[in-house]
């Protein structure tokens, strides 16, 4: 009698799970539709970076990569097409995913890699790249990175609804408010409007702390650089400026500088450039340049890239900002 009851319960649970799976797949299909028709915003941008982008120059970085470099300025001065694939709050796992997405389809001519002064000292956080989960099914190249988020990931991702976990706000926002993550005509650039008040902001500070490097971050960084090298892509590294914070040195800085020297990678350091760092009207907030500052900064970087190309056919020198 009891055995029959238990069997009945198991059957009901099984049936219930099948129905639930059906609902989940339908909901996932609707969300896929919303993603594929996203008018702009971060999902449009991620999709474009992974599936459509074929620009000559691709900028990869975090929020400062996203806000400090204007692709249109590069296009005008270098006569090459450019796409800014950077994303705020992201780190090396995201950069590697974008890299794999690009290299699967084509070989960009130049990668402008925005490196933070503490990038290799921060613990590697795969969870942040979790917003790319909706692409998991169609993009096998990103799976190893998403699987790193947690041991549950491989199982949970089978749910289509879970693939969009916590993404709804950013998925639907562009349907209501346009261009909050940047205008399409700006090719991935997200402006940071506003300005800092020098009276209220931090006083001029210097930083020269040597924190230990995170081995996993170092490994990801090296793989990132090697993958582009193997594909024949020229990589330029830029360290961006912060308002009133002069980074004299850091473990990341030292490591990256040595790496660039050994591997003949051009490195442009703006994180210690006093005129740029102290120019308050160029900053939207203490960490990001406003459109005026970003335009000026991008022109400077474009000039440096031009120099690097003009210098020799195959750039071999480490270039420091004067």
């Amino acid at each position: 009698m009891e055995f029959i009851q238990i069997k009945g319960l198991v059957r009901k649970v099984f049936l219930y799970l099948i129905i639930l799976t059906g609902i989940d797949q339908c909901a996932g299909a609707l969300l896929d539709l919303a993603l594929n028709h996203s008018p702009d915003g971060r999902y449009y941008k991620a999709k474009y970076s992974l599936e459509d982008c074929e620009e000559d120059i691709v900028i990869i970085g975090d929020s400062r990569g996203e806000m400090d470099y204007l692709p249109t300025v590069f296009e005008d001065s270098l006569h090459m097409s450019c796409w800014n694939a950077s994303r705020g709050g992201q780190g090396l796992p995201y950069f590697r995913i974008i890299q794999e997405g690009l290299l699967k389809r084509y070989t960009p001519k130049i990668i402008l890699f925005n490196v933070e002064d503490n990038m290799l000292e921060m613990p590697t956080d795969y969870e942040r790249a979790g917003f790319l989960r909706p692409f998991y099914q169609d993009h096998p190249e990103i799976r190893p990175f998403i699987d790193e988020i947690s041991p549950l990931e491989k199982w949970l991702i089978r749910s289509r609804l879970y693939a969009f976990n916590s993404s709804f706000y950013y998925l639907f926002r562009p349907y209501i408010f346009h261009n909050l993550d940047g205008d399409l005509k700006d090719h991935g650039w997200k402006p940071r409007y506003g300005s800092v008040d020098p009276e209220e902001e931090r006083a001029f500070t210097t930083e020269s702390e040597l924190a230990p490097l995170d081995p996993m971050a170092v490994q990801l960084f090296e793989t990132f650089m090697n993958r582009f090298k193997e594909a024949g892509v020229k990589v330029m590294i830029v360290t961006p400026p912060n308002y009133n914070l002069q980074v004299i040195t850091s473990s990341t800085d030292q490591y990256v500088a040595n790496y660039c020297k050994q591997n003949h990678i051009p490195l442009f350091r703006y994180s210690e450039n006093i005129p740029l760092i102290t120019h308050s009207s160029w900053y939207g907030d203490r960490d990001h340049l406003n459109p005026e500052g970003a335009t000026y900064f991008t022109q400077k970087v474009a000039h440096k890239i031009k120099d690097a190309f003009d210098l020799v056919e195959d750039p071999v020198s480490v270039i420091e900002f004067e």
């Binding site: 609902i23 989940d24 909901a27 749910s159 879970y162 976990n165 916590s166």
Partner: peptide, 20 residues
Amino acid sequence: RVFSTSFLILYMAGLGVFDN
């Protein structure tokens, strides 16, 4: 009962935090 239980499960799938 079935609807509300399903809602909780689907809400978890969509908005739960599964960071172990």
